[in-house]
Every structure is written in C-alpha cells, then in structure tokens.
Write a protein that binds this DNA or RNA. Structure first.
Length: 423
RNA sequence: GCCGUGUUCGUCUAGUGGUCCAGGACAUCGGGUUCUCAUCCCGAAAAUCAGGGGUUCGACUCCCCUACACGGUACCA
C-alpha cells in the first residue's frame, strides 16, 4: 500500500478527540494541508481515538467543522484508529515474537537499546536532532485495555497509509526516537517518513497557550466575528514567512507558495491585536455581496440587524460606510443599532443641541438633503465656533459612528431632530 | 534534576560572512485628508542582533560557554 506511489507526498493531521482543537492545533492542520497542496500531495485526516477515557463528546464533530469552515478539506475518508485494533495487535505480536517487545504488568512494553543513537534531520529548521538510547525511557505500546498507545498506532498507521512527512507539534520531538526505533523493529527502516516539528504558539505571557489567553478554537473566533481568511492568514504567519514584505495571503495563494523550509524554529507569541488588524484588512477586501452574506450568516439570529440588511434602499450606503469601521463582524451592530446606548448630554451640549435645532429649522425647513445639511452645519460650526465633534454628538447621541450624510439617508431627519430634542 | 530545542524592535518577522551603525508589519506616538470615528496617506520612536568568549581581514550570520524561555521526562496524545 505504501509503495504504490512512492513519490506522492502524503501527510496527515492526526488529532485526538479529547477536546476542541485550539488555534495552535489548527495551525498544525493548516501547515499539513498547505504542504500537501503545494507539493501536489494528499492530506489525510486520522482521528486518534485510542484513549477511551479522555474522549470528549462532540470533539470530533468540532474538528470536522473547523476543517470544513476553513476550507481545509481532507483527501479520502476519515480514518479512526479505534477501527484498527486488529491491525495494531498483529504488529504487537510481531514485535513480541521478534523479542522487541515484552509483556509486563498487563501491558506490552518496548525498551530501546541504550548504546544506540537515534537521530534525524528535522524538516523544520533543517537541523540534525539526536538522542542517546539511554535517555529514552521504556514505554508502553499496548495498554492493558487492549488499545495501543500513540507511539505504536501512529507508527503503524503512518507506515500503512504511506505517510511521507510527519508534520506535528514540537512536543513530539522527544518521542521521535521511540518512533524511529519502532520503524526499525518493524522492518520499515528504509522508508521512514521525514519528521518536521512545528514550534508551539505561546500566549502573551510567553507561557503555553491556554484558554486563559486566547487558545480558543477557530470556532470561538468565528463567533466573535473573525473571518476564516483572516484566521488562516494570521495562523500561517505565526512561524512562517515567505521572505518578502507581503503580509496578506489567501488560502489559494498559500497553496501555491507554502514551504516547510520557511518555518521558524522559535516559538511565536500570539498577538490578538494583529489578528484584529488582519481581520479588518480582509473585511475591507470583501465585495458588497460577499460582505452582506458574511453579515447575514453572522447575524442569522439577530432580527434587528437582519431587518436593517433587508432594507434594499439603504443597504448599499450602509454597507459601504460600515466596512471601513469594522475590525470584526461583531462591530457592525453597534454601528447600525437604534438601541445602542447613548451617553448623557452635558449642560453645555444640551444648550448647543437647542441652538442647533433652531439653526437647522431656519436653514433647512423640511428640505433636508445631505448637501444642505452639511453646508448648514459648516455654517453653524463657523458662527457659533462649535467643533464638529460636538455637532456630531448632539445630532447622533454618540461620540462616533457612521457619517452624518449616510445617517440621513438611512435614518432620515427625524433621527437627528429627536436627538437634538432629547437631553 | 536529566534530555532536547530555541533566543533580531513590546509582538510577528526579513536577514544564511562584508551591500545591516539591521529592513517590513502590528501596536504606540505625531501630522495630513476629513462632518465624528474609522479608512487612506506621510512621519517618528522602537533591537549595543540574550550575555561572554573564540574562529576570521571581517560575524546578526560559524564554534564554545553561561543565562533565560519552551518542550519532554504517563498503561495522555
């Protein structure tokens, strides 16, 4: 099976369904996927459900949904290790028969020769890593519950599935000598995969990324209004850089230019500010129809926002005006909501509101157009020496927001008049 | 403790012996455009290249040591 097309690159993403993958784990999937696409190879999804006790309900569904949403589609069908117990058992037996493994305390163990040295050239950083056999602990390959451990199942599957490159997190570096030994013991030494270990993402405090500081899943980010394009762009730039000064990359672009050689060896620190920035970049990149589609998906259960989007006559101006003012899709509602909380007017502002109301009545009468409005506000600004910042506030009840011209089109003059009357 | 890996502006990074008294981006600060806020444009500040030894005519780039960080040290993955 592994020899049918020896030159085809095959990689796999092998998560265990013990929780919803956070952004770091998802980045591992992304890198595998990109490497496969960039080299014309295959990207396989394998669920490593060998630890029955720690399986979390819904975790596998979440993994699938993440890949689906991101557009990182696995090739072929999903493999479950729990379906392959017989295969692992056969290999365990082979190892026992060959005196490479032994039973002890109800489990099957392997001990690597102490005098040996196990080394490889890592695909990340292209550097040699090696361990002395004496530093590799004796380990279990088959647990007493009949399930294999990662070490055994991983090696057997990678070999049988013809995996050519094992791209995984750096927490596996010290296990790699065990894996190399297993390949040898099973007689597969001559077509071992290449190993590439990705540096893990650190939180802002330089400790391992955890829930506390942003190790959320991409599903969490999605519900906060982040775009998949931005998440992909952000993840790929954590530890990978093609060398130029370009910062914005689409998935399809990455599928062409990605390379393992350009992955850094140091641990990057997660920076939410940069994620927010790149998300804004991608929002501004959206065409009007696509922008509306994303908003409708995001606000599918919000009637107020849906109603606003249903108004065909104002939708165009609204979307155009909102787009440059958003970092996430969640920023849209505060921009358009009538119910948005307004702060208290100061005494001075109340006075100005009254004056402005008089001014506009005299200047505009019932004929409010954008041009007439702005011109008369300019006049008010000059005559009364009231800064536009204040004018904007007394007209809208907010310190910032959409431009007045757009607001006139969307909400009409009564909106302004009511704000000038209220205090 | 032991084993492994890493260390360039606050952060992401460019840089593979001379073109680097170190370039870009985010964030920060200042300015311009402007009806607010953004967008956009311009500019500033920000790294004695972790520290110390070598090697070399010459080191951010090669070697060694130290410090620190991260990973591993489970019948978890």
């Amino acid at each position: 099976m592994n020899n049918d097309k020896p030159h085809t690159i095959r990689v796999r993403f092998a998560p265990s369904p013990t929780g919803i993958p956070h952004i770091g784990n998802t980045r591992t999937a992304l890198f595998n996927y990109l490497f496969a696409r960039a080299s014309g190879g295959k990207f396989i999804l394998r669920i490593e459900d060998t630890d029955q006790k720690r399986i979390v309900k819904g975790a596998e569904e979440a993994i699938l949904e993440i890949l689906e949403w991101l557009g990182i589609k696995p090739d072929g069908s999903v493999v479950h290790q729990s379906d392959r117990l017989k295969i692992y058992n056969e290999h365990v037996k082979e190892l026992i028969d060959g005196k490479k493994a032994y039973e002890k305390e109800g489990a099957v163990w392997v001990k690597v020769p102490h005098e040996r040295r196990f080394g490889w050239t890592d695909g990340v950083g292209n550097k040699k890593i090696s361990f002395l056999g004496k530093d590799v602990d004796e380990f279990v390959i088959l647990k007493s519950d009949g399930f294999p451990t990662y070490h055994l199942a991983n090696v057997v599957d990678d070999h049988l599935m013809g995996i050519t490159h094992v791209i995984r997190g750096e927490e596996w570096i010290s296990s790699t000598p065990k894996h190399i030994y297993l390949y040898e013991a099973l007689g597969w030494k001559d077509n071992m995969p290449e190993f590439a270990h990705l540096p893990v993402i650190l939180g802002p405090d330089h400790t391992k990324l955890s829930k506390r500081h942003g190790a959320k899943s991409v599903l969490d980010y999605r519900s906060e209004g982040f775009l998949k394009e931005a998440l992909i762009n952000f993840m790929v730039l954590l530890g990978w850089n093609p060398g130029g000064e370009k910062e914005q990359f689409s998935l399809s672009e990455l599928e062409k230019i990605f390379s393992l050689k350009q992955i850094n060896t140091a641990n990057p620190v997660f920076d939410i500010k940069k994620l927010a920035w790149i998300n804004g970049v991608w929002i501004r990149e959206l065409g009007e129809n696509d922008f509306e589609k994303r908003l409708r998906e995001f606000y599918s259960r919000d009637n107020e926002v849906s109603d606003v989007l249903d108004n065909k006559t104002t939708k165009g101006v609204l979307l155009a005006a909102a787009k440059s003012r958003m970092k996430t899709l969640a920023d849209f509602k505060p921009l358009v909501s009538e119910k948005e909380s307004k702060r208290e007017y100061t005494i001075k502002e109340i006075k100005i509101a009254g004056q402005l109301l008089e001014h506009l009545k005299n200047e505009l009468g019932d004929n409010w157009t954008e041009e007439r409005l702005i011109n008369s506000l300019r006049k008010f600004n000059k005559e009364k020496d009231v800064p536009f910042k204040t004018i904007y506030f007394v007209l809208t009840g907010k310190d910032q927001g959409l431009p007045l011209g757009e607001l006139l089109k969307i909400r009409h003059k009564d909106f302004f008049i009511n704000n000038l009357k209220s205090e």
